[in-house]
Design a protein around this nucleic acid. Structure first.
Lengths: 157, 157
DNA sequence: AGTTTGAGTTTACTTTTAGATACTCAGACG
DNA sequence: CGTCTGAGTATCTAAAAGTAAACTCAAACT
């Protein structure tokens, strides 16, 4: 793509994804859901996040269909809500694994990673890769970005 | 990983990556670098980002080794700095492609994506995938997160 | 009837981050 | 010497986030 081309950058899937997951705490809440948390008090305790923000973020993630609410019941207590991830939420895993992988490479604890991601069936470690439709691994530098169907020029002001 | 285990969540590669790329504008600046921008005025014009924030983000990205400065010279003007991406910066591509892919799937323009990522050699579209060491594609639900070498419990207060 | 509990909401205050605008600086040019 | 230009600083205001504590609500338990 030509560097000097004035693209309409508001029409960008990266920016639109960041509108949802780009606020503070949001990705960390999803991380905790993947690691097994589901209750308001779980998130609060493990993240140390302010309750008002936690409530706002959970509400937004449910509205966006990334989390869904179910109920749980401890014996001797009434039913309470819990948060579970949806298929739409699971589809954020590659992006977050990309962040995890970069952090493991460049900002890890000297001892190594705190968490290892493994293939449940075979136990082998997993990582994020870029591949082309033909199944070949692609280096980041070999990716070319070309205008797609919704490419728009920026209107001159 | 046990849901009720009180992990030390400060020791997390996702959180540490977000400390760097989680601020507003940072990922969008990197997107523009990938798409070909390199000058202060390019970023300002195309992003519409406040200049003081832009200057602060560029300085931080250079300090972190994600961007590097070079100089360019237009004929009839003095030398000025430009920003180029480093190998460390290129390693963020999988994470950002993950965001792009999610946005294309769930928040795209009705007409389709604004930008298509293609393999430079063969022209085929590329996407982000999770694979295990043996090269097999892995579904997000088949990833198991287990404690790694730097796993730490949270200290009881 | 009163108490406990998880899941919030509300309020009040401080700090941080973002945004808008004006100003500076240095070298090229006339 | 005065002006123009790209790349910033500086300054001020506004919005968002952080902190802390009090308050609500409903069912369960004493």
């Amino acid at each position: 793509m030509d560097p000097r081309l004035d693209r309409d950058t508001s029409n960008c899937s990266i920016a639109r994804t960041l509108e949802i997951v780009g606020e503070k705490w949001t990705i960390l809440i999803l991380r905790e859901v993947w690691y097994g948390s589901s209750r308001f008090s779980d998130f609060e305790r493990v993240l140390g996040c302010p309750r008002n923000l936690l409530a706002a973020r959970l509400r937004m993630l449910v509205e966006e269909g990334i989390l869904a609410t179910e109920t749980y019941k401890e014996p001797g207590s009434r039913s309470r809500p819990k948060y579970v991830i949806t298929a739409k939420g699971m589809d954020l895993v590659p992006a977050v694994m990309g962040l995890l992988q970069w952090g493991d490479r460049y900002r890890a604890d000297p001892e190594g990673p705190a968490v290892l991601a493994r293939h449940r069936e075979c136990g082998a470690r997993v990582d994020v890769q870029i591949r082309c439709e033909r199944g070949h691994p692609v280096q980041a530098k070999d990716i070319e970005s070309v205008p797609g169907p919704a490419f728009r020029m920026r209107l001159p002001e």
